[in-house]
Computed example of a mutant assay.
Amino acid sequence: MSQIEPTPEAVTQTRTYTNPVYEGYFADPFVWEYQGVYYAIGTGAAEAQGQVDEIAEASGVDSTNKLRVFPLLRSLDFLNWHFVGNALTRPDPALGDNFWAPEVAYCDGKFYLYYSVGHEDKNHQLRVAKSDTPNGPYEDVGEPLVDPKSCSFAIDPHPFRDDDGQWYLFYARDFLDTEGGVRAGTALFVDQLESMTKLKGVGKVVLRARSDWQRFLANRLMYGEIFDWHTLEGPCVRKHGGQYYCFYSGGRWETENYGVDYGVANSVMGPYSDAGNETGPRVLRSVPGRVLGPGHNSIVLGPDGQTEYIVYHAWGIKMAARQMCLDKLMWTPDGPCCNGPTWTPQTITKTIRISTS
C-alpha cells in the first residue's frame, strides 16, 4: 500500500504592533534572523553614556574583567522582544567606556560582532569579536580593524556580503577637508575584508556631507580647530535591482533634524551619489510632536519571508530614551521609501505552513 505524503499548505496570519517594539533603551538596533529566530543587538544606555565602569563597580566585577556589554534581544515572532543578556565580554578597560553600534555577521559557522569603543567623542576604534553562537559570549580578537594612529575616530561598522561571497566593511570616520563642496565632519567609508577579522586596506570614501540638514554643530572645536561640523553615520547596505544602496543617518542624533537617507551606486565600492536629498532625509524623518530623530537603521526580512523592514531607533516626545522601532521598507521607481516613522498600530503578516493529508 502506498503512503500519502502530507501536503504543506500556506496560511497567512495578520497581527498588529505599535512602535516602539521594545520598551527599554535600545539605540543603533541591528536585527538578524538565524534558524527561524530573530536577534537584535544595540547600544544600551550605559554603553552610550560611558558608564560601563560604574556598572562594573556596582556589580562587583573583579580584575579579571568579566563584565559584558551590548544588550542582546531575541524574538520568535519579530514583534515580542526579550532581553537575553549582554553579548560582548568587555576587552581591555583602557580602550574606553563608550561602546557603540554593534553589528553581527555570520560566516563559516562563526558569528562576528563588529563595534567601536573609545572615550566619548574621541579615540574611537573599530574592533571585532567572535562567538560560536548568536547569543555569545563574543570574545574580542585582540587587534583593532583600523590603526588608531592613522584614524583616531572610526565608528558604526557595518559588514556587507556581496553576491559573490566577498565581505566588505562600511563605517564612519572623520574628514577635515572641504574641497569640491563637501563639508568637514564624520562621513562614510568602505574597505574590503581580507578575512572576517582583517581589512584589506583598499578603502574608499562612500559619501560626504553636502547639505545643511546634515549639520551636527556649528563652530565645533575639533582637532584643535573650529569647524561647521556635519555628520553622516550608521551605514547599512542593501543590494536591489542590481544597484547598491547605502542607507545612512545624517545630522545630530539628539535632535529632531536627525533622519535616514541613502546613496546609490552601480558597484559596491562606489562611487555613490545621494543627490536629491538637499531638502532633508528621504527615508525617515521626524514627525514633530510624535516621533523625533529616527535613525541608525538595519534592514531585515519580516516573518512572511518577503516584506523588508527597516529597524531603527527613535526618541519619544519627551526625549527620554532611544527605543527600537520597525516599519515597512518599500521600493519605488524613485528609490527606497518607508511608511514610517509610525506611532499608531501597524499590521504585519506571517506565512506558516501546515501539513495536510
Rank of each mutant, 00 (worst) to 15 (best):
F111K: 01
Y262S: 02
A48M: 06
K239C: 07
V61M: 01
K66R: 15
R252K: 13
I354P: 09
P235Q: 03
V104G: 04
S150F: 15
F227G: 03
E57H: 13
A265P: 05
F83T: 03
V37F: 01
Y38A: 07
V31R: 12
A48Q: 11
W331E: 12
T16R: 10
F153W: 11
P336V: 06
V237D: 06
I155T: 13
S152R: 10
T12A: 00
S2L: 14
V61Q: 11
L326P: 00
R210Y: 14
W343C: 06
A101N: 04
A105V: 10
F227I: 12
M269K: 08
W343I: 10
I41C: 04
P333C: 06
T43P: 07
Y168R: 04
A172K: 05
S2C: 13
Q3D: 06
L326C: 06
V283G: 04
R238F: 14
Y309H: 07
D164P: 08
P91I: 09
P148H: 09
W213N: 09
M319N: 13
P333E: 06
S63W: 10
G276W: 02
I348C: 08
A275F: 08
P288F: 13
I41G: 00
L176V: 15
G340N: 12
F170K: 06
H158C: 15
T197A: 01
L95N: 08
Q3A: 07
I352R: 05
G109F: 11
D62C: 02
P157I: 11
V291Q: 00
D261H: 00
M324V: 07
E278H: 08
Y106A: 10
D274A: 14
A218K: 14
L126C: 09
S267E: 07
Y309G: 03
R238M: 14
C151Y: 11
R74E: 00
F175E: 09
L232C: 11
N257W: 03
R127G: 09
I299R: 12
D274V: 10
G50A: 07
T332E: 13
R127I: 11
L301A: 11
S273I: 14
L88M: 10
G85T: 07
T12F: 05
E179P: 11
V128S: 07
V202K: 12
Y244Q: 11
L113Y: 03
